[in-house]
C-alpha cells in the first residue's frame, strides 16, 4: 500500500544497529540486502512494518531490520503473525523462516496461514539443510543425503514447497534465489502488493553445511539453461538461445520441449491468475531437484478475501447491527430476577 505522505528513506533507515551474525558468505546476507534496499521503494513506513521469525539461521533476520520485529519460537512464526495481522490489519507483516522452521516443526501453521489467506508475506529461506543445529537433513533435503543424522543416507521423501503451498490453497506462490537480487526484489515486491498470504521460496545457499546445493541452476553461467522464468501471459521459454519451452503432455503433466519441434503455438502460456491451481501445480512438479531445469517466478497469484480484513469486517458488521457492546447489558443478557 503506497502512501504518498511516507517520508523518503534509504537502506540505512531500514538497517538496525545490530551486526549480522551469519557465517561469512551465507546466502542470508544477500537476501537481507535485497530486502533492506527494496523497502525504501515500497512506500511504507518503518513503524508500520513488522518482521516475525521462528528459530534457525534465517530467523535472526528481524534483528537486522530497523522496524518492529519478533524472534519467536521454532515453527510458530506463521501463527504469531496470524494473531498480529488479525489484531492489527493496518500493519505490513513479514514472516521469515527456513525450511526446517516452516516445513518441519511449523508445517502445520504454514499450511493453515496459507489456506486462511492471512495478509502475511512469508519468505521461506530454503537451503535444504539444518544450519543452526549444525547440519542435519531437512524436509527439503534430497533423498539419500548423507548428514550427521543420516550417515548412510536420508530415507525421507522431501517436500516440494511450491507444490505444498499450492495444495494448501495459497493465493500467491513464487520462487526465487539468493544469487539474483533483482529477481528476489521483484518477487518480494509482488508478494507485498498481494492482498493475502504470499509465500516466496528462496533457494538460499548454506555455504557451511550444504554449499552449492543450487549452483547448478543459480550460478550466473547456468541460469539461462537451467532457470525457467515464469512470466504471466507469455509462452514459457528458456535456454541459452531461448530454444526450449514447456508444454503440457496429453496426460496433463508438464514437459520440456524444443520450440523447433512444437512451434511457439505449442508452448504453454503461463497464467498465474488461473482460478484452478492444477497447471501451476503441474509446473511445480517439473523439477524434482535443483539440478534440473527449474521454474522460478510467480506460479500463482489469485484474489480471494483476505482473512484479517474478513475478521474485522465481521466485527464491524456485528457492532453496527448490535451497537457497541455494553457491560450492563451483557450482565443482563440471561434471564434475571430481583431480590428485594
Amino acid at each position: 500500500m503506497s502512501d504518498i505522505t511516507v517520508p523518503e528513506t534509504t537502506k540505512a533507515d531500514w538497517t538496525s544497529d545490530q551486526e549480522p551474525r551469519w557465517c561469512p558468505g551465507c546466502g542470508d546476507y544477500s537476501i537481507l540486502t535485497a530486502v533492506q534496499t527494496l523497502m525504501p521503494e515500497l512506500g511504507v513506513r518503518r513503524e508500520n512494518t513488522v518482521f516475525i521469525s521462528g528459530i534457525g539461521c534465517a530467523a535472526r533476520f528481524p534483528y537486522y531490520m530497523d522496524t518492529y520485529g519478533m524472534h519467536s519460537i521454532h515453527g510458530r512464526a506463521p501463527a504469531v503473525s496470524t494473531g498480529l495481522a488479525v489484531a492489527r490489519p493496518d500493519l505490513d507483516v513479514w514472516v521469515i523462516g527456513g525450511d526446517g522452521d516452516m516445513l518441519s516443526i511449523g508445517g502445520n501453521h504454514l499450511i493453515h496461514a496459507l489456506r486462511r489467506n492471512v495478509n502475511i508475506k512469508i519468505l521461506l529461506f530454503n537451503n535444504q539443510i539444518y544450519g543452526l543445529t549444525k547440519g542435519q537433513y531437512s524436509p527439503t533435503s534430497e533423498q539419500g543425503k548423507i548428514t550427521k543424522s543420516t550417515p548412510v543416507g536420508s530415507l525421507d521423501m522431501p517436500f516440494n514447497p511450491i507444490s505444498l503451498a499450492l495444495g494448501a490453497e495459497a493465493t500467491f506462490v513464487a520462487r526465487t534465489h539468493d544469487m539474483d537480487r533483482k529477481h528476489m526484489q521483484e518477487m518480494f515486491r509482488r508478494a507485498h502488493a498481494h492482498q493475502g498470504a504470499a509465500i516466496v521460496e528462496i533457494y538460499q545457499n548454506c555455504n557451511v553445511f550444504n554449499d552449492g546445493a543450487f549452483h547448478k541452476i543459480t550460478k550466473r553461467d547456468n541460469r539461462d539453461a537451467m532457470l525457467i522464468n515464469l512470466s504471466h501471459g507469455e509462452p514459457i521459454r528458456f535456454g541459452i538461445d531461448n530454444e526450449r519451452g514447456l508444454a503440457m503432455s496429453t496426460s496433463g503433466s508438464i514437459e520440456i520441449v524444443d520450440v523447433d519441434d512444437v512451434g511457439e503455438a505449442g508452448l504453454l502460456v503461463h497464467d498465474e491468475a488461473a482460478p484452478d491451481p492444477a497447471v501451476a501445480f503441474a509446473i511445480s512438479r517439473l523439477a524434482t531437484a535443483p539440478t534440473m531445469p527449474t521454474p522460478v517466478g510467480v506460479f500463482r497469484s489469485v484474489e480471494r478475501p483476505e482473512y484479517a480484513a474478513e475478521v474485522n469486517r465481521q466485527v464491524a458488521e456485528v457492532t453496527a447491527a448490535k451497537g457497541a457492546g455494553n457491560l450492563e447489558d451483557l450482565l443482563r443478557s440471561q434471564p434475571t430476577w430481583e431480590v428485594s
Binding site: S72, A79, G83, V86, H109, V315
Partner: peptide, 25 residues
C-alpha cells in the same frame, strides 16, 4: 461488538502463539 476477535486455530500451539502475536500488536 465488544471488539473481541476470536480465532479457532489449527492447534493449541497456534492458538497461544497467535495470542502472543496479538499482544505484541
Amino acid at each position: 461488538h465488544f471488539g473481541i476477535r476470536t480465532l479457532q486455530a489449527e492447534d493449541e500451539i497456534a492458538a497461544v502463539s497467535a495470542a502472543v502475536g496479538a499482544s505484541f500488536g
